[in-house]
Structures are given as C-alpha cells and as structure tokens.
Design a protein around this nucleic acid. Structure first.
Length: 427
RNA sequence: GUGGAUGUAGCUCAGCUGGCAGAGCACCAGGUUGUGGCCCUGGGGGUCGCGGGUUCAAGUCCCGUCAUUCACCCCA
C-alpha cells in the first residue's frame, strides 16, 4: 500500500497554500494594528509544562497528548496548545520584570490525539494572542475585539460570542463546594463520566450533554451568583465595556473551558454554519498561570483560533478567498534552426522577471500551439513570442491574451512595453 | 473512545441479481509544419483502500483492517 499522511494530518497544496498565506497575512495585519508582536516557541516542550498548567485531570493531558521520552529519558510532549509555552518563554526571558503589559501573537501547529472529523485534526494550526500583565477588563475586551475584527475581515459575518466567568481560585473553591453539595444527593442520576467528574472536576458536570445530567443541574447554583466581589466587578465591567461598544454577546453559564488555568473570563466565538466543530475561537483569562510556573503574580488573557476552521468557514462565508495569481507574461520561444532561439527566450524571461513582472516559459519547448495553450491556462496577460523571424529582425511579438491584439516591438523596447501593458491591465 | 455512511483513473462519479475495468473533467498529441479559448480525432494513465475467505470466476458476496466523513464526546 502507498504511504499516506498519518491520520488526522493533511497536506496543504496549491492553490490552497495561497489561501493560507492570505489568511495568515490578515492575521498578521490585524495583530499589527492592535500592536501585538509575534512570538515563536518550540513545537515540543517538557511534558510537565502542560501537566501543570493545562491540568492533570483534563482530557487534553489525560488522553490527547503526543508525549514521548527522548534518548536521555526526558519527558516531552508535542504542544497541544499555545498559551502555556508563551507563558513559559515570557518568564524564562525575564520579561516579567520588563514593561507591562506585553502583547503577543503566535501562529503554528498544535497536536492532539483525537478522533479526526471535519474541523478537528490531530495536527492543526492555530493563531492566538496573549496579553501578559494586564488585570484590566479592557484587555479582555481587546482580545475579544481582535478576534471579532479578524472574523469580520475574513467575511465571517454572524459569529456568536459566548461569555462566562468562572471566578478566581477562592470563589471557585466555594462554588465547587456548593455545587458538590447540590449534586451529591443526585449522584445516582448522573452519567458514569459525571460521577467521576463530581470528585475531580465538578464544573465539567455543568456542560455534560447527557439528558440525565442536564436534568440534574437544573436549579443548581450558578457560578455567576457565587463570584467574589473582585470577580464580580471584573465581570460587570467587561460586560459594560462590550455593551458600550455595541458588541452583542450571550452569557452561557455552562461555558467551562477544558483547560485548568482559566480564571474569571472565558469566551468562545462560534460560527454556526460550520457544523459540529463550530467554535472558531476559544479563550479567556488566566491570572494564575505565570505564578503556577514559578513566576510573580502576573495576570494574562488571550485566545486561540483554529486556522483550518477559519479556512473551512471562509469557503462558506460571504467573502470566499480567491486563490492563484495570474502570470503577467508568458514568453513563447519557438524552436529554430539553431539554439539561438532558446537562448534569447531565456534571456528575455530573465529580463522581464528582473523588471518585477511574473513571467513564465516552457522549458520543454513544445509546439507554439501547446505553449499558447499553457499561457492561456496560466491566465497570462501577455505573450511575448520569439522565433527565427523575430531574431532576424531584432523584434519580439507581443500579444494581449485578453484583447487578442498583437504587435511587433523592438527587442530593446519589449520590457518597457510589457510593463506598461500589465499596468494598464489593472485599470 | 462510541455509533452510522463511504472508499473504483489526478478530480467527480457509474458499474443492475458475481462473468474481459467505464464515463465526464483534467493531462498529452494531431486536425492548423508560427498563434490560446470553441469544436473534432486519437492517446497515456487503475495492484477497484489493504489483507483474508467463499466461488470455475469477486470491483460486486462474507470477515477483518486502514482511511475519509457525519453525529456523540471533546475542542481550535
């Protein structure tokens, strides 16, 4: 059997690579406008980084990590997400004692061992931003707005913003106790997963989709009611700012992100036409993360965005991405009596390229008809023809493919004529 | 990890109750020995996902397996 790309991975080929480049370009441009700087971190890290921050009991760490030992026995893992590595790098390079806040964006592959499905892959690429050192709700709003502007720019209208607050460690502990007290008597009605979640991670019971569990949580105390004063103020402020900006959102108190480092704000940006995997963006605040890694108490907020899903969405969006650039000039070289023709052909191609135009030729020197066909297929704006006759007369034939006219130009003048022609094409 | 659907040419797919592997598009060449698109003619291209079984005979039936896909779960 032929070798194939491993399960859950895929090749990106032209013309799709051009679409990727476009989307990545928009991401860079929007980041630039928001003054976020790029950071690049390794593709693999110490396993412990994720175990400690993402959480030992989370699905990601428990069953979805590509972890391995290297030749000297170090426990490593392909990164399943981008925030912990950025936090680690931030600390490692002493940025905690520099000017704050620090604002980063990153793009790169993430790895999770999951069952593949449309919009869910074992290797996927993520764009994300992180703001480190700002406790302000304005920063929560800034990252949300960045994500929404990005979606907008890519023609994804109708995204839905879901918000929740999961409090800080202190009020969450109080809340967990209340929730356990509430659910304990109903434990027998819960699904098997939730019975164990009840001990280990009771918040996750709230977003269980099982009918029986949904019944059990009706009337359960809400995290939002249990927020401490500071968390309450942050939550209220953030919603006030969003409202003042005219940004619509839905409060979803079952929204619990699957990573342990989140505090206070958690949010998702969904795009319903996408189907089952319709979360474009997931993010939130992580005020304890830097401290968990042994640093000072520096707060953070950010999000991750799956680029494959963005690409999938743009196919169905209001602004599909046009891929594939056109060739400006195709130089048709005709086989003549000697090798003079092909020499002149390649020389002209080189001159045209140096002038900045996109230029192509046929290395196989096929028939004129075949070369014209190629030029047409490549959407060439102009064709420049060189054969024995042209060389004898010191000219080149220039043909406009779109307008079907053709004229003879002095060889010394060809590049100038082509440049002008291509310029006028755009008008 | 659970359940359903689907795997035949580069792409989209046809192949009925087992009987010589097909079409459209794409690609190449010719029709026009120096002119693209349209048209006509011809051509190249396949271990029918893989492995096993039943049978005189399997793309077709049975079992397994891998992959894709949809939903669950989870998430980006």
């Amino acid at each position: 059997m032929q070798l194939k790309a491993p399960r859950g991975t895929s090749d990106t080929l032209p013309p799709d690579t051009a679409k990727w480049a476009y989307v990545e370009g928009v991401m860079r441009e929007v980041s630039r406008r928001f003054n976020y700087e790029e950071i690049r971190t390794p593709t693999f890290e110490h396993l412990e980084l994720f175990a400690r921050t993402v959480g030992e009991t989370t699905d990601i760490v428990e069953k979805e990590m590509y972890s391995f030992k290297d030749k000297t026995g170090r426990d490593l893992a392909l990164r399943p997400e981008g925030t912990a590595p950025v936090a680690r790098a931030f600390l490692e390079h002493g940025m905690a004692s520099g000017a704050l806040p620090k604002k980063f964006f990153y793009m790169g592959p993430m790895f999770r061992y999951e069952k593949p499905q449309a919009g869910r892959y074992r290797e996927h690429r993520q764009f994300g931003v992180e703001v480190l050192g700002s406790p302000s709700p304005y920063s929560d709003v800034e990252v949300i707005v960045l994500a929404m502007d990005l979606a907008d720019e890519l023609g994804l209208t109708g995204t839905e913003l879901y918000l929740n607050s999961i409090g800080c460690p202190s009020c969450r502990a109080d809340y967990k106790a209340k929730l356990i007290a509430y659910l304990q008597p109903k434990k027998e009605g819960l699904c098997e997963d939730c019975k164990s979640r009840l001990e280990r991670n009771p918040l996750r019971v709230l977003d269980c989709k099982q009918e029986s569990c949904r019944c059990a949580i009706v009337g359960a105390p809400s995290m939002l009611d249990g927020l401490c004063t500071d968390c309450r103020i942050h939550w209220d402020e953030m919603r006030r700012i969003l409202t003042s900006l005219g940004i619509e959102f839905q409060v979803d108190n079952a929204l619990v992100r699957g990573l342990d480092y989140y505090t206070r704000t958690v949010f998702e940006l969904k795009w319903p036409p996408l189907g089952a995997q319709n979360t474009l963006v997931g993010g939130g605040r992580y005020d304890g993360l830097i401290a968990e890694l042994g640093g000072p108490a520096i707060p953070g907020v950010g999000f991750g965005m799956g680029i494959e899903r963005i690409l999938l969405a743009t196919e169905k969006g209001s602004k599909p991405i046009l891929a594939g650039g056109a060739v400006d000039v195709f130089v048709v070289g005709l086989k003549g009596a000697d090798d003079r023709v092909s020499q002149d052909t390649f020389g002209l191609v080189r001159k045209i390229r140096k002038s900045g135009l996109v230029c192509e030729f046929d290395p196989l020197q096929r028939s004129m008809k075949a070369q014209m066909k190629q030029a047409d297929r490549m959407n060439a704006k102009f064709v420049a023809i060189i054969g024995d006759d042209e060389i004898a007369q010191g000219v080149v034939a220039v043909r406009s493919m779109a307008e079907s006219w053709q004229k003879t130009v002095a060889a010394s003048d060809v590049v100038r004529v082509l440049r002008e022609g291509v310029l006028n094409c755009g008008k």
